Amino acid sequence: MTTQDQTTAPANAATKVADKAAPNTVTLDTPVRHGDQLITAVTLRKPKAGELRGIALTELLQLKVEAIQAVVPRISSPMLHKQDMANLDPADLVALGGVVIGFLLSKEQKADFLTE
């Protein structure tokens, strides 16, 4: 058991460091295959107003599937296509949606959320 604990600790520490280094990167619970590429992690960038066109912000804040599926392909790297989004594990979809919601909050709102 000691060996397992010792090997797990560095892995957990590395994961925490990676999360701080790339807070907008979501490691997928269930990787998605796009052609020959297996997508295991997706990095999102903050959308510009034009990339939110046709989307009600309230629908994003409510984690509506259609809204998340419309916005994420516009701001993801590697780019997730419509079919990729349809094949996502629901837990991965929620994780991506959570990052998108974070982009919509002001610094003050994020601070209030984190302190409460």
Results as ranks from 00 to 15, higher is better:
S77R: 08
D29S: 11
A13C: 09
A91S: 06
A14H: 09
P23K: 14
G102A: 09
L80T: 00
E59T: 08
Q6A: 14
S106D: 06
F113D: 15
V72M: 03
V72L: 02
L114T: 10
K82A: 10
L96Q: 02
Q69W: 07
T3M: 15
L80N: 03
E51N: 01
Q109W: 12
V71L: 04
A21Y: 10
P73M: 01
V42H: 03
A95E: 02
L44C: 00
L38D: 05
L44D: 00
P31H: 10
I39W: 04
H34G: 05
P78R: 00
Q83K: 10
T115C: 13
I75F: 02
A18P: 06
Q4I: 15
G98S: 09
V26W: 00
R45I: 05
T2F: 13
I68E: 02
L93G: 01
E66P: 06
L44M: 01
P31S: 13
L104N: 05
E51Q: 07
G97F: 05
A56V: 11
P23M: 12
P90C: 04
G35K: 03
P78S: 03
D92A: 04
V26N: 03
A9W: 11
G35R: 05
V72W: 01
A21M: 15
F103E: 05
K82H: 11
K82Y: 07
L114M: 14
T27W: 11
T25C: 05
R45C: 01
V72H: 00
V100N: 00
A49L: 12
G98T: 09
D112R: 08
L80Y: 04
T8Y: 11
V32T: 05
D5Y: 10
E108A: 14
I68F: 05
R74H: 05
A70Q: 02
I75Q: 03
K48V: 14
F113A: 14
N12P: 05
V94F: 13
G102Q: 08
Q62G: 10
F103M: 03
T8P: 07
K46E: 06
L44G: 04
A22S: 14
G97V: 03
Q69I: 08
G50Y: 06
G50L: 09
A49G: 11
V65L: 08
T25P: 04
D92C: 04
T115M: 13
K20V: 10
P73G: 03
A13E: 12
F113N: 15
K82I: 10
H34N: 07
T7I: 15
V72I: 12
T7C: 15
R53D: 14
A18N: 10
A67L: 01
D84M: 01
G102Y: 09
L57H: 06
G54C: 04
L80I: 07
L28V: 09
